[in-house]
């Protein structure tokens, strides 16, 4: 097991390398000139050319990529004049001059657009996205699995049809629409009708105030969870219908176990594997940024950062986001595989 995880983590490093190369190549093909993007409206061709040299953008792509990779463990200094200094710690350089930017190790580059290192941008956005994604994840899993089991147990009856009908609605409405409707009613209409105020959705760090964190993210969670919960309801219902027809369920009943034990310990446990797969991958995907929810509720998460850097052609930021998103997806895959082995004793990891 330990060896398996180690091998998978090693493979993950390889995959991240590959992905970084692909991202680099893709962006070099973009018509935008990264040197032009380093300065604003008052830019003269001379400044652009100077910046090109400073940032090493005049170098061949392979050299640029190599420098980028070396900077990750090693850091960089962006002086006001002259070329970037790689690995300042090795040469004993420090940023003393005014206007010099320091990019400490785990340096993913510097965004001139945002005037901030990529690492800092991601570190700022990540808690927002983590909070949004994890909260929604818990919500949709609980709601989806419970309503799926409920529908399966009342198969063909009106409760089943109602549940699945609601799921279909959740499934078919675009989440920006659900988000806006929620926002309109909960944040504006209901306070107007009832006098109860609801804090406008915004991100407060959990460490600062768990209560505000919860209230501020509730609407984004519901918005995101609607879509996923609908999907998980369908998935769970189908799984339950399948497993409840299995012979071992009959065996469980013939032992005289309570219906609750039969359904949850024997039925749901067996039907859980595909749900775990889907959940792991969905969560991993969301960690790369819940783009629509962040946009609708104006949350400064990875999703918004991604959109902004795409429209700005902000290559360093985008590379960083691609890497962190892929990191989550690959990690999610690994976690799913390990969980699989934990759930199903027939699965052996090797």
């Amino acid at each position: 097991m330990g060896g398996y995880i180690a091998r998978r983590l090693l493979a993950m490093v390889g995959m991240l390398f590959g992905l970084s190369i692909i991202t680099f190549l893709l962006f070099s093909a973009l018509p935008a000139d990264p040197a032009r993007l380093t300065c604003g409206k008052s830019c003269t061709p001379e400044i652009v050319e100077a910046n090109r040299v400073r940032l090493g953008l005049d170098q061949p792509l392979a050299v640029q990529y190599g420098r980028f990779m070396v900077a990750i463990p090693c850091g960089r200094i962006y002086p006001t004049t002259g070329p970037i200094l790689q690995c300042p710690a090795l040469s004993g350089e420090t940023a003393t001059e005014a206007g010099t930017f320091m990019c400490d190790p785990i340096c993913l580059g510097y965004s001139f657009r945002q005037g901030e290192t990529v690492t800092n941008l991601i570190v700022e956005a990540l808690p927002v996205t983590l909070s949004v994604a994890l909260g929604a994840f818990v919500l949709w899993l609980v709601v989806g699995i419970l309503s799926g089991v409920y529908a399966a147990l009342r198969r063909g009856r009106w409760q089943d049809r109602t549940t699945m009908g609601i799921a279909l609605i959740g499934y078919s409405f675009p989440s920006f629409f659900i988000g806006l409707v929620l926002l309109y009613f909960v944040a504006f209409q209901i306070p107007e009708w009832t006098g109860l105020t609801y804090p406008y959705p915004k991100f407060t760090p959990f460490s600062e105030s768990p209560g505000l964190w919860f209230w501020g993210l509730l609407l984004p969670w519901i918005t995101l969870a609607m879509l996923y919960a609908a999907f998980y309801t369908r998935l769970t219902r189908n799984q339950m219908l399948e497993t409840l027809g299995e012979d071992y369920i009959r065996t469980a009943r013939s032992k005289g176990l309570s219906e609750r034990t039969v359904i949850y310990k024997h039925g749901l446990r067996a039907g859980l594997t595909p749900i775990v797969t889907a959940a792991g991958l969905d969560l991993a995907g969301l960690l790369g940024g819940a783009i629509i929810a962040e946009q609708v509720f104006n949350l400064q998460g990875l999703g918004r950062l991604a959109i902004q850097s795409v429209s700005d052609a902000d290559l360093p930021v985008l590379t960083g986001i691609v890497l962190i998103t892929s990191f989550f997806v690959i990690l999610g895959n690994l976690v799913v595989d390990v969980l699989y082995a934990a759930i199903d004793p027939r699965v052996r990891l090797a």
């Binding site: 012979d247 071992y248 065996t251 032992k255 759930i343 004793p345």
Partner: peptide, 21 residues
């Protein structure tokens, strides 16, 4: 309450009748 204590049953296919997990 009687099932499993007073009366019990064995089934045709023992592989599918035992919980795999």
């Amino acid at each position: 309450a009687l099932r499993g204590r007073e009366m019990a049953m064995i089934f045709q296919d023992p592989l599918s009748s035992l919980h795999p997990f």
